[in-house]
Write a protein that binds this DNA or RNA. Structure first.
Lengths: 203, 203
DNA sequence: AAATTTTTACAAACTAGTTGGTATGTTTAA
DNA sequence: TTAAACATACCAACTAGTTTGTAAAAATTT
């Protein structure tokens, strides 16, 4: 190895992500990325064969961080509570805390890509789908554990309940951005906590 | 008036909306619009001075329909129920019904624009913000009416509760698209109904 | 009511600038 | 000195937007 290319690659990824959230993916030109990073076209295409390869690297990094947060919260909730409902509520609380002092509205790359799907190779969209399904499965497990010791006061669809977490996350991001209200996100997640608190009663 | 240009204009708007949901706004070229509509550049720029003027017309039409649905549901809920909680639940049920037999995942232009904000003039983004606030105000009114006759079982933030409707709508659109599951939307709105049913008890 | 003028609603061809991507070099560190 | 990590210059295709022209309907005049 000659010079270390990782700082350059990381810089491309970081600045690209910011740009994609501002302009969308197809609205982000490679020239813009070069401007922000201070590198040249040769450097860019050394690290990424095509613009779509950048898209793929971006979403993979985003998903890695995302799933990382999920597992951290899962572990913390498991450590703090043995009761399955407390664990579920703590899991949500972890994200309420995480989102409680944002200075800017957050953005999700899944949503960004989902609203211009034709720009990406099918495998990228499938990867997003699979990542969201990972979230759902995790949440389904948490819910099933709850249902062993709790009854639901109204009839519930477990899959729908499990999706609700991601739905509120994605939705609160959109609305938070549209209203320029970063604090909105944690407030919405708190509603989900309320819902579960109201829904389940000890057997 | 000479020849009637309205059919042409409407065709541009309809095809453009479809294209924007496929490619994003900046990913949609005017040439693509011309291909789909079968018109020429002269015709396009006769009806819309700039591409951004199209963006504005698109969002205004979308918001008009959107607010229209809101008022329809509001009226119907008001006709069917005098009890404020029943009215609130019926209001949501109207949208559950509306979304219950989708064949494709739906899309929202607010979210689409929000994830490439730099492409639009500030007034367009403000217009989106104001439209979402209209939703919130309507929902706040419904909730306040409920709280006159009902108590909330847990402490609630009315603004957060009012936002939750839009949040679940936007979020379910994103997740529905990402998972290619059109049925998901109505299932998520049903959760919101559950929440309110559990939350309020007669004074 | 017939002839003329004006306006609307387009069509076709063009332009200046931008796009993603490439070909060919140069630098740098092991 | 060799391969990795860039830099420079370039290109064909595409971009939004413009220019110029024209058919037809509506408005105005005769």
């Amino acid at each position: 190895m000659a010079r270390d290319g990782k700082p350059t690659r990381d810089k491309i990824l970081a600045e690209s992500k910011t740009l994609v959230f501002e302009n969308g993916f197809s609205g982000t030109s490679i020239d813009q990325i070069l401007e922000r990073t201070g590198i040249t076209k040769g450097a860019f295409f050394y690290h990424f064969k095509t613009k779509n390869a950048l898209a793929q690297a971006l979403i993979e990094e985003f998903a890695r961080d995302d799933i990382g947060h999920m597992q951290e919260a899962l572990q913390k909730a498991g450590e703090l509570h043995s009761d399955p409902l407390d664990r579920l509520l703590q899991f949500i609380q972890e994200f309420v805390d995480m989102m409680s002092d944002l200075t800017d509205p957050p953005s999700c790359l899944y949503a960004s890509y989902t609203y211009e799907p034709s720009q990406f190779k099918p495998e990228i969209l499938e990867f997003i789908s699979e990542t969201l399904l990972t979230w759902r499965k995790t949440f389904e497990q948490l819910l099933e554990d709850v249902l062993k010791e709790y009854n639901a006061k109204v009839e519930v669809d477990i899959a729908a309940l499990a999706n609700l977490f991601t739905v509120i996350f994605e939705g609160s991001y959109v609305v938070s951005k549209a209203l320029n209200d970063p604090a909105l996100v944690s407030g919405q997640l708190a509603q989900l906590k309320n819902y579960f608190q109201l829904l389940f009663e000890k057997k």
